[in-house]
Design a protein around this nucleic acid. Structure first.
Lengths: 309, 309
DNA sequence: TGGATTGATGCCGCCGGGGCATAACCAGTT
DNA sequence: AACTGGTTATGCCCCGGCGGCATCAATCCA
C-alpha cells in the first residue's frame, strides 16, 4: 500500500473517468488502470464498479473516498507543523535566569520573541546562578542568563550586555552624587555581598573593585538574590555593589552611584541544541542587546538624577 | 512523499539505530539511510540529529513520530471498515414491503439479518405494491417484497414464499369451516378487492380463482392495504381473498378459510447492485424461506381450528 | 453500421530503490 | 597508542517494478 495508489484512487473517485484522471495525475491511462487494480488487490476491497463504459464507486469505495480526504489533510497538517517546529516557529523554550535579568534585557527579549514567534510557549524559571549551569546540563532549562562564563565544554555562550557596576546605598546615606568620588570612601562601611564562593569569576570581579582601592569590604550579610540585597540595603543594614540594571523598576528609597568598572551578562545554552527555538531566541537576544543603549552610564545617570529630585 | 519513507522513519524513531531498524524493515542499512535522507528532503525538515555515532530525534521529529502513530492507525481503521463494507458487514439497507410481508417471512428475516450483521442499519418502508418497483429503480429502496413478478430488465427477483390464498370472512358469517366447500358458494357475496388494476399478475391470479367457478365477484370496495381490507371485512362490509399469512397476528373476529390456489411472495432488487449488503440480505432471506413451513396448510388449519374454539 | 470513447492487457524500456563494499568516524579496551 | 567493534554515510552496480505505447474489447452515439 503506497500513497501513490491512494492519490490515484481519489482522483478517479472524483472524476469517475480513468482517462481524465490519468491526465491530471500526469500518467497514461493504462498505468492508472493498474494502480487501481493493485490498490483493490492490496486492500482486498473492490472500490469501483466498472463495466467497460462507466465507472462508479462501490459502497466501500465511497466510504474510503470520504474518509481519505481528512486523512490526507492531517498528513499535510503534520508536515506543516513539523516545518514550523523545524523553523522554530512552534515549540517550547525554558529560560533560566537570575532575578537581575528581569531588570535588563530579558523583558524586552521576551516581548520581541513572543511577537515574532507567537507559537512558542516560553516558561521562565528563576534559578540561582550557581545552579543554572547544572540545570542546563540536566535538560531542565534550554537557555540561561548568567554573569559567569561557563567552563563546561558542552555549553556555548555569548555576551549579551556589558554594564557598569553601581554602588547601592540608602537615600539618607551620607554619600550622594555630590559627595561621592570613589569606592575608597567606603572603607569602613559594612557590605552585603554575594554568596557565590570565591572561585567564581563574578565574585572575583566584584572583589577586585575593592582591591584597587586597597581593601576588602566587610561582609555583614550574604545573598545571591538581588531583591533580597536591595531590601537589606534599604533597611540600612549595609551597602552593596550591583549591576546598574537593578536600578530600573525599583521605586525604593535607594540611590545608585555609577562605578567605573563593568560586568557582563551572558547567555548560555547547550552546544548544538537540536531545538530550533533556541537559535531563534539567541537571535532575538542578540538583536535586543544590539539595540540596547550602548553607553548605559548616560542613561543611568539621567535616571539617577531623576530619582534624586 | 511515500508511506515507505514514513514507515522507515517510525522504525528508526523507535529504535534510534539505523542498523537494527533496517533489519526489522528487511532492508540493508544504506537503503534506510537514504530513505531517511529523502524523507527529510521531501518534508524540508531535519528529523534526526545524527553524528556518526548516536541518533536522536529533533523536536520536529519527535512531534512527527507521536502524531504518525494515530495517523497510521486511522489508515488501518479505514481499510478495515472498507473491508467490512465490502463484505456487507457494515452499511445501510432500505427495504420496501407491502404490509402483508410483515405477517410472513420479513420479521424472521430481519431478526436473522440483524443478528448476523449487527453493523448494518436497516430502514423499513411500507410501499404500495405498484410503487415499489418504481421506488427501487429510483434508488429510494434497495430491496422489496412483492407478490408480482417484475418485468423491468434492470431488476432481479427470487421467489421467497409460496402460500395458499384464503377466504376471509367475519366470524358470524353463515360460512364456516364445516359449511364451506368451495368459492362457488360466494356467488352473491360482496367482495373487497385490490385496486391494482386488471393488468397486474396478482389481480389476474385472484380473479382466476373466481373464474374457475364461473363468475366474477361483485366488488363493493377496493383497497391495496391488507389492514384496511381486514377491518372492512370485520365490519361485515364484504368478504376478501388474501394470502393466508395475514391470519397470524390478527386477533380480530375474523375467520380464514384455506383455498386450494396459492400465491407467491417475491424478493426483488436492482440487478448487479454494488452494495454488498443486498446480497447478504438475499442470502438470509433464502435461508429463512428454506426453513419456512413447507406445507403451510397444515399449520394454518391448526391455527384456524384454535382460533375457532 | 462506423466512428469515437471507454477501461483492460501485452510488451518493452528505463530508472529509482536496494544490496554490497567501503569510507569516515567514534568509544572503549588492551 | 593501537586495536576493535559498531555507528552512519557514500560510491557503484544491478534488477524489478512502474509507466508508456500499441492494441483489444465493449459500449455509446450519430
Amino acid at each position: 500500500m503506497e500513497l501513490r495508489l491512494l492519490r490515484a484512487f481519489r482522483q478517479v473517485a472524483t472524476d469517475l473517468n480513468y482517462s481524465r484522471a490519468a491526465e491530471k495525475l500526469f500518467v497514461a491511462q493504462p498505468a492508472l488502470s493498474r494502480q487501481i487494480q493493485s490498490l483493490e488487490d492490496a486492500m482486498g476491497v473492490r472500490l469501483f464498479d466498472r463495466d467497460k463504459r462507466t465507472v462508479r464507486l462501490t459502497a466501500a469505495g465511497a466510504y474510503l473516498n470520504e474518509q481519505l480526504g481528512s486523512w490526507f489533510d492531517t498528513l499535510d497538517h503534520l508536515t506543516e507543523q513539523a516545518q514550523r517546529i523545524h523553523n522554530g516557529d512552534l515549540g517550547d523554550l525554558r529560560i533560566g535566569h537570575p532575578g537581575s535579568a528581569l531588570y535588563s534585557v530579558l523583558p524586552d527579549a521576551l516581548a520581541d520573541f513572543s511577537r515574532l514567534y507567537p507559537g512558542v510557549v516560553t516558561s521562565l524559571r528563576e534559578v540561582n546562578e550557581v545552579e543554572l549551569q547544572e540545570a542546563l546540563l540536566q535538560q531542565k532549562i534550554d537557555v540561561g542568563f548568567v554573569r559567569e562564563l561557563p567552563q563546561d565544554p558542552r555549553l556555548s555562550s555569548r555576551m549579551v550586555l556589558e554594564e557598569p557596576f553601581s554602588l547601592v546605598l540608602p537615600r539618607n546615606h551620607w554619600l550622594n552624587p555630590s559627595t561621592f568620588t570613589s569606592l575608597a570612601q567606603c572603607h569602613d562601611e559594612p557590605f552585603i555581598l554575594p554568596a557565590l564562593g570565591k572561585s567564581i569569576t563574578y565574585t572575583r570581579q566584584l572583589l577586585s573593585l575593592f582591591a584597587t582601592h586597597g581593601y576588602t569590604p566587610k561582609a555583614r550579610y550574604e545573598s545571591n538574590y538581588g531583591a533580597t540585597i536591595l531590601r537589606l540595603v534599604e533597611k540600612g543594614l549595609g551597602l552593596a555593589v550591583l549591576p546598574i540594571s537593578y536600578q530600573s523598576g525599583t521605586s525604593l528609597n535607594l540611590r545608585f552611584l555609577i562605578l567605573p568598572n563593568s560586568t557582563q551578562l551572558y547567555l548560555i545554552w547547550r552546544m548544538n541544541d537540536p531545538n530550533p527555538v533556541v537559535n531563534n531566541f539567541l537571535a532575538v537576544c542578540e538583536q535586543v542587546a544590539a539595540d540596547w543603549p550602548v553607553k548605559p552610564p548616560e542613561l543611568s545617570t539621567e535616571r539617577d538624577r531623576f530619582s534624586t529630585e
